[in-house]
Amino acid sequence: MNFSVITSQFWSLVLQGLALGLIYALVSLGYTMVYGVLRLINFANSEVFMIGTFATLYLEVHVLGYATNSPSLHGAKLVWTLVLVFIGSMIACALLAMLVEIVAYRRLRARGANRLASLISAIGVSIALLEGMRIITISRPMTTPRLLDKWSFGEFHGANFRIDTLMAIVVPIIIFVVLDRFVTKSRLGKSIRAVSMSEENSKLMGININRVITLTFCIGGLTTGAAAFIYTTVYENTVFNVGFNMGIAAFTAAVLGGIGNLRGAFYGGIALGMLEQFASAMLGSQWKAVTVFTVLVVVLLFKPNGLFGEAVQQTRT
């Protein structure tokens, strides 16, 4: 075990862990919010992420016409281009997530189908999307243009404050703050919380359950779309199965934080990102997965509802 990295690369690993962890956190919202209202895992969320990365690529290359070797953009053009692609990716993922809800969940729910049926239908949608994209792209990885030049603001004890790293930290934090306020303060947000506490009582209070569930999928899709945009802008590549590892990581983050809990997803994502970075640096990258899942099992042994599981029972925020 190499402890010297803690002193030599501590701030660098913290910065990178935050950036990676917050991408995980955004995707984990797609799992945790749906679980909150339906008590079901939305297995198609990993493929919503995958479609988001391809939507980003499609918008940049085919709609805006940038080639993989196009020069980076600057000034206002850079800002509006990134904002446009960011919104496009979020809309694509939100629409897909709502479609997943209609196809895989709503009808089965209306017919009082077994909960496992919904679970399997979501897995079916996930596999159909994955294999469809495999056929379309003949499994080839794709590179996106470097629209955002990776310039640095400076270094702090070896941590490089690069623009893309900061974007991967700041944008998710803003999204979380807005979403947290929305869920706790707005009428619609309160409806989501009410449904997550008791569907029956919510019905009696006149809440339109289907509308709330669709809204929840929509929000999960929007945050997953934001994650897909950030991922593609930072790593500049995608492939048909990009959602698989991301889905496992995000689901792990949701469970680590306490699934069903918005703030749990946030802190669970950060904890996972940090854990991966420090495990890779101290033990070697080959030990990353072993370390992460060992820690997850140990945490669940002592806190079966995840790090913020108790808060779930009380507030669902």
Binding site: V5, S12, L20, G158, N245, E276, S280, A281
Partner: peptide, 12 residues
């Protein structure tokens, strides 16, 4: 997907 920790180690 993420090679940033490897890059940090190499640089250090």
């Amino acid at each position: 997907a993420d090679y940033t920790s490897v890059a940090s180690k190499v640089k250090a």
